[in-house]
Amino acid sequence: MKSTVMKKTMYFFAVPALLFYLTFWIFPITKLFQYSVTDYNGFAQTFNYIGFDNYRALFNGGTLGNSISNTLVYTVVSVVAGNLIGLALALLLNMKIRGKGFYRSISYIPTLFSAIVVGFIWSYVYMPDSGMIATFLDKLGIPNDNLNFLGSYSSALYSIIFVEIWKNVGTTMIIFLAGLQTVPNDLLEAGRIDGCGGWKLLRYVKLPLLATSITINTTLSLINGLKAFDFPFIMTNGGPGTSTNTLIYSIYKMAFTEQMFGKASALGIISFILIIAVTAVSVLLMNRKEVSA
């Protein structure tokens, strides 16, 4: 039986890629499942299978709850605030103003730096007494004795989220800008003729047409937030105490400091499931709202 579309032998050409995919992607993931039921410590090659003890310990201990709640706060704030600011920037820079290109580039610059660089810069900005903010307030004569952004329980997490937003708002803005270019002029004109003001145009014409961009941006920052690691790692080490421990940071700490690879794998699988679930639900919800021009 001859196929008119493709010779069956052609499937063999997919084999090398498939093998690579299986060896370097699927196999390690299944290994993770295996390690999650052991007491593997990360270097000694002997370990025991201990059933679901790791999971049990995680659900009974405080780490899981604490890091999930930190991660969710991180995600929600960075998704909502990041998208609002990104959208506002995009709308501003879509107007007919002089030096538009310059401002667009400026807003995109933070995105170009690596997280390490950004983290270090901001650690100095936030530093008490001699940091940038403290010095600035000094110049203005505002007392800043108790200013301790990264060192206080109430502000550390939000200070980090702010940096995350600062770094990523450029990307969000670019995607919104691109979306705004696809809004057809005739629709806008029709709206104006029907008597829409600026706000109504935005609410009833632009935003619905931007739904695709909103889905992309929300999904991207959602995933970004759920796997937050670099800023807690660079700027606070998860501290003070455990107030900036995110899921991924807890996994790192568990595996590499406490040498509990088994338990860390279990936590990895829990966050894997969590991230997939949250992302899937939000994508499904948002897909329903999309319209096309």
Binding site: G238, G239, P240, T242, K253, T257, E258, Q259
Partner: peptide, 16 residues
């Protein structure tokens, strides 16, 4: 390893 880190994290709550 891990016990000292636990002490540090918990004590930080006192400092904070």
């Amino acid at each position: 390893t891990g016990v000292a880190e636990e002490m540090e994290a918990k004590f930080a709550e006192i400092i904070g």
